[in-house]
Amino acid sequence: MVEIGSGLVAIGAGLAIGLSGLAAGWAEKDIGSAAVGAIAENPKNFGRSLVMTVIPETIVIFGLVIAFLLMGKI
């Protein structure tokens, strides 16, 4: 039987990843669509657009780190 406390920690870890993933996706969608527009106008913008688009991905990484730290507590 798993303790309730451990279960809550696991839920917390899941929330950390899931919510930060949602947040990153939400932030990235606008940048991504703008980036596609910029690339369509001038393909040379690809590199810079890629950089701009992936900036919010760091949020998920934070979520992931927190999740691993929480999992360490179970």
Binding site: E57, T58, I61, F62, L64, V65
Partner: peptide
């Protein structure tokens, strides 16, 4: 700080 943590993606 977030730059440093960003490298954890290598493991993730």
């Amino acid at each position: 700080l977030s730059n440093i943590l960003s490298y954890t993606r290598l493991a993730a």
